[in-house]
Design a protein around this nucleic acid. Structure first.
Lengths: 188, 188
DNA sequence: ATGTAACCATACGCTGGCGTATGGAAAAGG
DNA sequence: CCTTTTCCATACGCCAGCGTATGGTTACAT
């Protein structure tokens, strides 16, 4: 007697990617395997290998998907706000709640960064994203007269570390991140 | 014709742990396997399974080794310095150069933290170490009148993030970390 | 309704790592 | 020296995941 759990008869590429991110946050990179993923979706690897050539291509698709959203998705949300200080704080808010809706239970960035330590291709993607974000942040700070190049790095590093800590002890990212941004802003 | 690479005839538990940390930083958690480690040491897994019951115990030994040094080793270096601000800056120095001598090429903390995302036992160890470090740091800041509990978290998160970034783009940890500490210290 | 393309299940051989068992070499001690 | 302990090599059976092949379903268009 089979359980009648809503079983979508057919799966899309997106469904597989979503399952990939969920597995990544839950089990780490070692969760990115065809058969376990198939089981988590209630199907078999026959489906997987129809949508993707092999595991490598699947992982590349995941990273490509993340890399695209990681920068554009966030920055586009800020275009509306003209005031730079307010924009910085808004950036903090967005980054703090960066858990992609229903792409997993927890935040994915720490999982991605962890993954990138065991796979060169993921490392390169993270490197590119970091560079773009740092460049953007640096420009933002320069607009309000903060030219010390360390500042962008400090804020971004703070975000990374706070996300890491939060994902472990469940304390919020937003509060200390807001404090940090305020501290830097009061440097004039 | 075999290469005459200095081949220590017999290996100690420590040798295996060192190889473990090297593999962890180089390949990630997936490098922590008996046979590949044996190959990297020019021996066979017969040796591995003599020193360790199984892979799980080996990994636990690695984490135990790290957990012990991670806190005690660092804090004991500070006992000499009585001035709290100086001690903070010294802490920054030590943490920045936290690459353990010859336990691997790069810094191990990011690798450990990444590892801890795929293994519950490692996650708990990191959680304990973070708690102790944060507590220590909080006490240090309290001594100079900085009671905002966010500050310790900000500094520690900054360190974590800076180590992560550094391990990717090879820029130093120390400079921005020093700046961050100075900024917090000037808050009175 | 029927044909075509999209999608999935199953079975197969293969590889890599696991842990055990057993015998042998190499130090250490007497 | 000879024994005992320590350490390592090899061979074995096992299992999980890989990628392929092949046939079966389901959707969709005509």
């Amino acid at each position: 007697m089979v359980f009648s759990m809503t079983k979508p008869p057919r799966l899309s590429k997106q469904d597989w990617l979503k399952a990939g991110f969920r597995a990544l946050t839950k089990h780490g990179p070692s969760g990115l395997k065809a058969e376990p993923l198939a089981r988590s979706l209630g199907t078999t690897k026959g489906s997987f290998y129809w949508h993707f050539k092999d595991i490598g291509q699947f992982r590349e698709a995941m990273m490509a998907h993340w890399e695209q959203r990681a920068y554009t998705d966030v920055v586009s949300h800020l275009e509306a706000e003209p005031s730079v200080p307010k924009r910085l704080r808004l950036l903090g808010q967005i980054a703090a709640n960066a858990a992609w809706p229903d792409y997993g239970d927890g935040p994915i960035e720490p999982a991605i960064r962890a993954w990138s330590r065991s796979e060169a291709m993921a490392a390169q993607a993270v490197l590119r994203v970091d560079a773009r974000r740092l460049h953007y942040l640096g420009g933002l700070l320069a607009e309000i007269g903060l030219t010390n190049p360390d500042f962008a790095r400090i804020i971004y590093a703070g975000l990374i570390g706070l996300e890491d800590l939060s994902s472990r002890d469940d304390k919020p990212v937003e509060t200390p991140l807001g404090t940090l941004i305020d501290i830097v802003l009061t440097l004039e």
